[in-house]
């Protein structure tokens, strides 16, 4: 067979893609790997048994959320993430993170940090390991209960992103201090009054039954307040100004990740809200509720880190958030 030069043959394909993909892209034409790896992969009918963990529903069931979609494959990930593109993107980002950690370590930038900055960074960032763990749990939950691969798939990626971020925060802790700092931060997370609002917010989200509500609570609102506050306003602005640019290098992954992920969150909300006035109303109501709770939850952290400037910054963040969701079709 080695004598056959197969390349010399031009043969006409019988079809260019799978039938179910062709139906979604307007006919039989070449499809992307995102499309072929995503469309209709989740089972929708003829299930054999009801879950012992949820006998009221099918294994995959539209009725697990109040959001109603005619077609759950109306959702598109603007990043076009399937496993291959997802890991490629994160591998590039981790390479940058790796060289940033190496840079900070090799130049002895940690010992050059003003003590107050180092202290604040530890106090602020290390308890967030637990919050990120909560993000891992919640996104795994959405992946589990979500309907249709188009929307469930990005959630396993995001669940693992949160774990990765928790691990980067751990490394920051080990670089700025040692493992006792991790224990101290966990104590703060559990008992320090300034963290209790956030901890309660997250624990309450753990028991939500509606997975789209959980998406709003965690991915839209909590991420949407916390990342701008912590990584943009506190680390990139405040801490950097006080001589802590090394900290900003160590959290660059988070800043970039948030920028990228928020685009997908926005696309998801926009699609669901555009589907029907009922969806838009439900999403708006959830967003209003969680925004109020979320702002209250992050207040003590902002005050601790920013002092007198906190209210102004929080006001900015809230305004920005409101104009962001207004563009997505929500009415707060």
């Amino acid at each position: 067979m080695s004598t056959i030069d197969l390349r010399t043959v031009t043969i006409k394909p019988l079809r260019h893609t799978f039938t179910h993909v062709a139906e979604r892209i307007g006919g039989d034409k070449p499809a992307t790997r995102y499309q072929e790896g995503t469309f209709d992969i989740q089972a929708t009918h003829n299930f054999h048994y009801r879950p012992t963990w949820d006998p009221d529903h099918e294994i995959f069931d539209r009725a697990r959320t109040a959001i109603v979609m005619k077609d759950w494959y109306a959702f598109r990930d603007p990043r076009q993430f399937y496993y291959g593109t997802y890991t490629a993107a994160r591998a590039r980002q981790q390479e940058t993170a790796e060289s940033n950690f190496a840079f900070v370590e090799s130049r002895g930038l940690v010992s050059a940090l003003p003590e107050a900055v180092r202290h604040l960074a530890l106090e602020l960032l290390l308890p967030l390991r637990h919050l990120e763990w909560g993000g891992n749990m919640n996104n795994a939950q959405i992946c589990d209960y979500g309907y249709g691969t188009a929307i469930s798939q990005p959630h396993i990626y995001k669940a693992m992103d949160h774990l990765g971020i928790a691990q980067y925060l751990t490394r920051v802790g080990l670089l700025l201090a040692d493992e006792t700092a991790l224990d101290a931060a966990k104590q703060q997370w559990i008992a320090d009054p300034k963290w209790q609002g956030l901890r309660k917010y997250v624990e309450d989200s753990f028991v939500l039954k509606d997975w789209f509500e959980l998406f709003v609570a965690h991915n839209l609102v909590l991420d949407g307040l916390l990342y701008p506050l912590v990584y943009e306003r506190i680390v990139d602005d405040d801490i950097t100004m006080k001589g802590g640019s090394a900290i900003a290098m160590l959290t660059l992954f988070m800043t970039e990740w948030y920028g990228e992920t928020a685009k997908w969150v926005d696309a998801t909300i926009k699609t669901a809200a555009a589907e029907s006035p009922a969806n838009a109303q439900q999403l708006s109501q959830w967003t209003r509720e969680y925004l109020q709770r979320g702002v209250r939850a992050i207040q003590p952290i902002a005050r601790h880190a920013l002092g007198a400037n906190a209210e102004a910054v929080l006001g900015d963040i809230e305004d920005q958030f409101k104009s962001r969701v207004a563009k997505l079709g929500l009415a707060l």
Partner: peptide
């Protein structure tokens, strides 16, 4: 009986 989080009976 099937171990389940709530009654597990179907037609």
């Amino acid at each position: 009986a099937v171990a389940a989080v709530k009654p597990y009976e179907f037609e």
